[in-house]
Design a protein around this nucleic acid. Structure first.
Lengths: 233, 233
DNA sequence: ACCTGAACACCGTTCAAGT
DNA sequence: ACCTGAACACCGTTCAAGT
């Protein structure tokens, strides 16, 4: 329509890998990963599904690209900061990113084909620990422990069937109503006396476990050497 | 063939929800969760896909049933055991179960519709912590921290592209060959100097993080009260 | 070089029909 | 009560054809 092109054809933004990835992430964020189909993604971009294959090799490649974008969103702490506060900030940012992109939590492809943002991120985290005095073995231990916790927490958080606090309470109440309390007394007690108390939000559990791990790592680092776990290289 | 039935029709084992679940788990274990389709599952059971709908409501219901079976496989420690060793044994069993059924790790449905085995398991874990002297708040903290770690570890373990130690080394070597080492020096160092050292297996990282968390929980339990995290009910 | 239409081999699920 | 065949509305992906 109002195009000043000499051809009367409406100017169309060219497709690109970047645009495909951005649109795919937006779609997965808003409609869920199961809504991300090549046909629907093409529709969102005003293009036939088959055109996407000019910019991504296949759907797996698309998912790899999306995952690398997610890693790129995590705040990269400066390597000059003190290891504990730097790592803590990075972990908090990581969880927020995974909450923003729930579909990314279960995607197991990050390990197989890490993209440039993923590699940069990993290198920085390792560097922070090494600068903080961690041996190679303790660095591997720490990285594994911390990221396992974050991934697992995000997964549990995402698997909760509610989003708002009100919904949460309503569902916990419904859950409790169906629960044979005499059969599961401890579960019933924890639900009524703790989870259903005003102000409870599962996400608030995150810092407890994170600080538990970080404090324990600090103790392993500065305290007496544990020959079982903290052998030097 | 050799049937002693009065009808000459070969006796066929009747379908049942139990048989459907067992067959589905076996299929997912051996061929991967993406191979678990209603048609393929029907084939394995010698039946048309549509017959399955007489025993499961739909595919989601099938997955719920499978998840509950998985929870049923976790060793339930006796509630009379000391909390730390009981919880530790349960965590080790849990990780083993998830390694046996990798498809169960990413399934987020456990929280939404817990089955009887899942409820029994949760009730027992909560009971062990409560008997060990954990407040309700600390019980919730501990449960979340420990299970986040286990789920996340299993996810990372399952996302590794190899299974045997030799494969692992070969792939790490290939990874390293493609890695621009000057761009990611810390990642390159950790890979060559630690991961590629003989005898390294990622699964061996598990007890480090687990004991890190359990020791820290014990300290929170017996040590000076932390008003931020360990408030009583 | 990039986009498209038709086609292929799949999905989960429904429904009426069989026994 | 349980099983089936055909059908529906989807998938990811290929391939030759268009521009």
């Amino acid at each position: 329509m109002g195009s000043t092109d000499k051809t009367a054809v409406p100017t169309r933004v060219r497709l690109s890998r970047d645009r495909v990835l951005s649109s795919a992430i937006a779609l997965a964020d808003t409609a869920g990963i199961e809504a991300l189909t090549m046909r629907r993604l093409g529709e969102d971009l005003g293009v036939e599904a088959m055109s996407l294959y000019n910019h991504v090799a296949n759907k797996d490649d698309l998912l790899y690209g999306m995952i690398d974008r997610v890693y790129g969103e995590i705040d990269l702490p400066s390597p000059d900061d003190q290891w504990k506060s730097a790592l803590r900030a990075r972990c908090i940012s990581f969880r927020e990113v995974l909450a923003r992109h729930p579909w990314a939590t279960g995607l197991k492809d990050s390990g197989t084909r890490p993209g440039p943002s993923t590699l940069r991120h990993h290198d920085r985290v390792i560097g922070i620990l090494r600068s903080g005095g961690f041996s190679l073995a303790l660095t591997a231990h720490a990285f594994s422990a911390v990221d396992s916790y974050i991934f697992g927490f995000a997964m549990q958080e995402n698997s909760l069937p509610y989003t708002t606090e009100d919904e949460s309470a309503a569902l916990a109440r419904a859950f409790l109503a169906n629960l044979p309390g005499e059969e599961y007394p401890h579960l019933a007690e924890l639900t009524t006396q703790h989870v259903l108390q005003p102000g409870y939000r599962y996400v608030d559990e995150f810092p407890f476990g994170l600080d538990l791990i970080l404090d324990a790592l600090e103790r392993r680092l500065t305290g007496p050497q544990d020959p079982k776990h903290n052998r030097t290289v």
